[in-house]
Design a protein around this nucleic acid. Structure first.
Length: 584
RNA sequence: GCCCACAUAGCUCAGCAGGUAGAGCACGUUCUUGGUAAGAACGGGGUCACCAGUUCGAAUCUGGUUGUGGGCUCCA
């Protein structure tokens, strides 16, 4: 009977998992051969490959990786069987008496029976599964060395982790390596420099972004789009300060639970002011300027609010992890009976916004009440149900992270998948039972009495910095026409075509097209090459023929040469591409 | 913050074992006016990240600081 494709996919996933797990054992054996005193920690398979953590007498070098790989090849060539054996606790303790990390693991296992896997003379505490023999590890590669805390706890010893990956065929491994290289080519830090989008300055502070004119263009377009859609969706845009007095942050509770992420205060007229790490208290200030009636809720206050948070030096990463960033923030104040509807609307706006950038695949996570929480359980249940129903209203699959909510309320997180299949967290929608209480927010109900509003925090793109970083990688720098900082470059072939080139530019500018003329006295070939490297969507070559016929010769960045197109026809074409937000 | 590595011209990198710096690209000038991914020549440009130390002498060795990269932890 022919197997379904689905079975096949699961087979390969399972095979890879076993093969990688087995490869980690073989690697551990190789490390032990080179370092007889090596202390072994854990070595699982991962989505992309495998790793093993070791406590070693000296730091590893890339040369060590080559030596380990060569040992591994020997073991694989011997095609040793993986043999499972169940042993009792005492035997295990004896067997691993020189392996303190293994002993700790043994102590944590509840079962009296423990599993071991052996190949050749190497035994590891392990429940598998593995491939049946080392020869079944068809293609592998060790990739990198990194530090990792024992059990992920920064108070515990720092171990050395070796990352590697394995595949069922050499071709599949090569393909994986090719994808990693593609990811490196798309790295937003590299493209940010090559396309002159942004910079970061050692002399001016780590994790603080400078948007150059071209990056600024893109950001402005995204922001304008965002503002327009938020007005359409019933939000009001507000602007709030960057500083707030200590008392505000005491009321909000941030000085209590968020202090490590806040910068030191500055003294103004003998008062302490803090730079804001969040926008919510400021929006609350606006809410509190009036007595709110149930009739005017929901009140949706949105702001592209720039916040500053202290992030530890080691975590900073290009645009994706910074110390100053602009959240596409909003706070929705609503009646309890409006929550579900509001969440539905938030999700609708989310999919509209993300969809416009070409993100159509989402992973949705619903996080529920943690052990430590504020507020009433009945309120939590009600709010969590509202989140769940909103997700289901859109017929979406989702994962539940039980107990993964913030202490102040349940939340929905959405991850998007980019062109390389990597996922990124952007959207977060959180209900907050804490702030309304702390700031004593109220509204006058239909019954004339005071009620507590619900408060929803939400950021759809997350932060402009991170989102643009993701966009750069998603498009590989080749922004669709509506986002491209330069949409077209006019390339005169010789100096006598400059005047016409200028006319072409003037004509296109009437439609707001971002068009430049490459007026340098360079050869056309060079100008095409550079426009191509800058990933400009349209190159408009103009020479004698085009001047004579009021046309432009259109070359697209995908290499397609459209030949001569009448100027007015091209004007319509690019206008349509830009206005329709086509993803080309 | 922690582990490891790295820091040389605007960019990408050489510079072997300490004797005061090189290439390509970019930039400037000149020549070239060329039909779909690099025309040519000449030229300018670096207190070798910063601060100490060792040394007759440090880009090169040692320590510290700052920053960057790969991870860990944390997160928009």
């Amino acid at each position: 009977m022919p197997r379904s494709k689905k079975d096949n996919v699961e087979d390969i996933a399972g095979l890879r998992e076993r093969m990688r797990h087995s490869a980690s054992h073989v690697m551990a054996e190789g490390v032990c051969a080179l370092f007889p005193d090596a202390k072994l920690a854990i070595g699982p398979s991962t989505e992309e490959g495998f790793y093993y953590d070791f406590d070693l007498p000296r730091p590893l070098t890339p040369d060590d990786l080559a030596a380990i790989e060569s040992k591994m090849k020997d073991t694989i060539a011997k095609n040793l069987p993986f043999v499972f054996e169940e042993i009792n606790r005492e035997t295990a303790k004896q067997m691993f008496s020189h392996q303190p990390y293994k002993l700790e693991l043994i102590d944590d296992i509840q079962d009296e029976k423990l599993g071991t896997y052996r190949h050749g003379s190497f035994v590891d505490l392990c429940i598998g599964p593995h491939v049946s023999s080392t020869g079944e590890i068809k293609a592998f590669k060790l990739l990198s060395i990194a530090g990792a805390y024992w059990r992920g706890d920064e108070k515990r010893p720092m171990l050395q982790r070796i990352y590697g990956t394995a595949f069922e065929t050499q071709e599949a491994l090569d393909e994986h390596v090719r994808r990693m290289e593609e990811a490196a080519r798309r790295d937003h830090r590299r493209l940010g420099r090559e396309l002159d989008l942004f910079s970061v300055h050692e002399d001016a502070g780590a994790g603080l972004i400078y948007w150059h004119p071209k990056g600024g263009r893109i950001r402005t377009i995204v922001e304008d789009f965002w503002k327009k859609e938020h007005y359409n969706a019933g939000y009001e845009l507000v602007y709030t300060p960057h500083l707030g007095k200590a008392s505000l942050w005491e009321t909000s509770g941030h000085l209590g639970f968020y202090r490590e992420l806040m910068y030191s205060p500055m003294e103004v007229d003998e008062q302490s002011y803090y730079v804001k790490p969040m926008n919510c208290p400021f929006h609350i200030m606006i809410y509190k300027t009036d007595i709110r009636s149930y009739r005017e809720l929901p009140l949706r206050l949105a702001e592209l609010g720039t916040v500053y948070r202290y992030e530890r030096a080691g975590v900073l990463h290009g645009l994706l992890r910074v110390r100053g960033f602009t959240q596409d923030d909003a706070h929705i104040f609503c009646r309890p009976d409006q929550v579900e509807d509001e969440i539905i609307r938030v999700l609708e706006l989310t999919f509209l916004m993300l969809g416009a950038f070409g993100f159509k695949e989402y992973e949705i996570y619903l996080s529920t009440r943690p052990e430590k929480y504020v507020g009433e359980t009945s309120e939590w249940d009600r709010a969590t149900e509202a989140l769940r129903k909103a997700i289901e209203k859109w017929h979406l699959e989702y994962n539940v992270d039980e107990g993964g909510g913030a202490f102040y309320g349940p939340k929905i997180d959405i991850k998007i998948r980019d062109a390389l299949g990597r996922s990124w967290q952007c959207t977060t929608v959180q209900i907050d039972f804490n702030m309304p209480e702390r700031f004593d927010l109220t509204f006058a109900g239909e019954d004339g009495r005071e009620h507590r509003p619900y408060m929803i925090h939400r950021a759809l793109l997350g932060s402009l910095e991170r989102f643009l970083g993701v966009l750069i990688e998603h498009y590989g720098g080749a922004f669709p026409t509506w986002l491209a900082p330069v949409q077209a470059v006019v390339i005169p072939i010789a100096d006598r075509h400059q005047e016409y080139a200028q006319r072409v530019q003037d004509e296109l500018k009437k439609d707001g097209i971002r068009v430049e003329v490459d007026a340098r006295s360079e050869r056309m070939n060079l100008k095409i090459r550079e426009a191509q490297l800058q990933k400009v969507p349209y190159m408009l070559v103009v020479g004698d023929k085009e001047v004579a016929s009021s046309a432009v010769s259109v070359r697209k960045r995908n290499g397609e040469n459209m030949g001569a197109v009448e100027l007015q026809a091209f004007r319509e074409m690019i206008k349509r591409a830009a206005q329709s937000r086509s993803l080309e």
